[in-house]
Amino acid sequence: MLRASAEAKNIPVNINATIDSSLDSGVEHGDVLLRFVDAVCGPDNLAVEPARTALLDRMGPAALVEAAAIAANFSTNDRAANAIGIPLEGMFLEGSATYRKELGIDDYPSARNTPDR
């Protein structure tokens, strides 16, 4: 949905930034959002507070809550998907083959749960 939602707003999104968070995503405030995710989901406790402050200063407290909530949500979904070994439905496979290959997503260990990819 990143590409679809960006296209709906005529934003030239660079989805490679989801792989390399030092890249410009093209999304407004994408730099502080990616820094925040990397800190909150990463192993460096010292990185969290400055990343939170940067997001708070740039986008405000409500956006900080939303970003934390979305990171939380996908922390659940990704763990459930990977630890239960679910395959990706065909309807989602069809439109994602090109960017999955480009981004290396087909090489994830969890890709093996979708033998028809």
Partner: peptide, 17 residues
């Protein structure tokens, strides 16, 4: 798009196909 950028980056970190 900001929501989905956060979601996508989390899933990349978690290597969730």
């Amino acid at each position: 798009p900001q929501v989905e950028l956060v979601a996508a980056r989390v899933s990349v970190i978690n290597q969730c196909f």
